[in-house]
Design a protein around this nucleic acid. Sequence first.
DNA 1: AACGACCATTATA
DNA 2: TATAATGGTCGTT
Length: 146
Amino acid sequence: MMQTGSCSFGLWKVIVSWEGNVVYQVQFVRTAPEGPVPVQFTKFLAGRVDSFDPLVSAAVSGDNAYSRVYAAVSKIPYGETRTYREVALVADTHPRVVGNAMARNPTSLIVPCHRVTASDGTLGGFTPDLQIKRDLLKMEGKKKRG
DNA sequence: AACGACCATTATA
DNA sequence: TATAATGGTCGTT
């Protein structure tokens, strides 16, 4: 059965909904219902692990543009970044569509949308607060390329 | 089914 | 700095 819980990242709460190894929702929110989450989340947000294995995002299933984008983003290694353009090439779509998909990413962290940045060297966006993206990349010790 | 607006983009000048 | 081109989704009709 589906379970929902939350953990903390700085001032933010991370709400997690999952069933077995499939994660349906990961969102940064101000307030969230209390409850346990899979240990992968607390460890990741503490910088103790670099993967969510064996958890997977429900968003990568299917065969549409968004799921291809989510699958491509999921392959970006910890600590590295790719541009919207680079992701678009891999997913066979347009950079703008990658932006759309990231804005609607239902499973942040599992699909590491914080590792997707703009071609001009700026960060791009992050919902609900760009500072979260900065903090996550800082925590991962952002390197360059791959 | 068709259309227009929206967007976390990018290339060009 | 501004603008055109771009593609997928979503609401409206």
